[in-house]
Computed example of a mutant assay.
Amino acid sequence: MKEYKWATLGCGVIANQLAEAMEKRGKKLYSVANRTHEKAVSFAEKYGIEKVYNRIDDVFEDENVDIIYISTPHNTHIEYLRKALAAGKHVLCEKSITLNIEELREAMEIAKENNVILAEAMTIFHMPIYKELKNIIDSGKLGKLNLIQMNFGSYKEYDMNNRFFSRNLAGGAMLDIGVYALSFIRWFMTSKPDQILSQVRYAPTGVDEQAGILLKNKEEEMATVMLSLHSKQPKRGTISFDKGYVELYEYPRGQEAVITYTESGEKETIKAGNTSDALLYEVEDMEKTVSGNENLMYPEYTEDVMDIMTQIRREWGMKYPEEE
């Protein structure tokens, strides 16, 4: 497989994990772009990256760059996606990939026109535990899927200047943590939910601080989601079938699941992959997809999830400044 040159746009927590994932493969990022040049220089020095751009736009014009990983705030993604994809770069973009479904479909069209791969960096689609569970479920061992229950609650300090609560930085529970719960649901559900009910509690800034969601698809599979940015909950997913149920904790980067069989009560523990290698799995699947050998990025699931999130926010009447 070709040796791909990766650039990072952004040098925060995720970019550091990306650089560490590259090092695990015995490789390095090729270049770094960032709004604050000094931070980019420090990041490059830390990881031995050979190229730092003076302007962010220079990364799109660099003919040596194959793949760009975008990890800037949600509401800046579409601006960079337009430029990167139009320049013929493959893009792996941090979740949530865009603010809404219209932005995503625009980006997908640009990617199609330029024959490049656009993908969301959604860990759930790449952690080995999910691929292992999919094989078990597809075997029919657990029977028919009936119900999925999702929890994700963080306790963020009640600081309205924090990015989690900021409308100007596309804060709120849906785009920050809801995207994980809904991606989990979409991974296991037979088809996209087409019946959706929800409730929301707002933070003083007007972003969604807490939300409850009910979903059902045409196969009559159902799901519940409880989200909060100011009330700690376990990151737990439970998938219930006719013949048993599956529990995963810390599911955004899960590595272990427990199956409880309905008839006997017997428990079986399934282990696959390592939480610490989450970015490594994403990088490897992206390169395999770019090479044309396999399609491992699931853009159809990304589109379904973004459509659901957009529908829910519109029912709430909640908009970000860019959408007004």
Rank of each mutant, 00 (worst) to 15 (best):
E3V: 04
G12A: 04
Q17V: 01
K27H: 09
Y30P: 05
A33Q: 03
A33D: 02
T36C: 04
V41N: 04
A44M: 11
A44P: 08
G48K: 00
V52S: 05
Y53A: 00
R55H: 12
D58F: 07
E61G: 02
V65C: 02
I70F: 00
I78C: 04
L85C: 04
H90Y: 07
E94A: 03
S96C: 14
L99H: 03
N100Y: 02
L104P: 02
L104I: 11
E106D: 13
I110F: 02
I110Y: 13
K112W: 11
N115V: 09
V116W: 00
I117P: 02
A121W: 05
M122N: 01
T123S: 12
Y130E: 00
E132K: 06
K134T: 12
K141L: 14
N146V: 11
M174F: 13
L175D: 03
D176I: 15
G178W: 07
G178D: 09
V179W: 07
A181E: 13
R186H: 09
Q199A: 15
R201F: 14
T205A: 12
Q210A: 13
Q210F: 14
A211P: 05
K216P: 07
K218I: 15
E220N: 15
Q233E: 14
T238Y: 10
I239H: 02
S240Y: 14
F241G: 06
R253T: 07
G254I: 04
Q255D: 15
G265H: 12
I270E: 10
A272Y: 05
S276N: 13
D277K: 04
D277Q: 10
L280M: 10
E287M: 05
T289V: 06
E294F: 07
L296C: 04
M297V: 07
E300I: 07
Y301M: 11
Y301I: 13
D304W: 09
V305K: 03
I308G: 04
I308L: 12
K319V: 06
P321D: 07
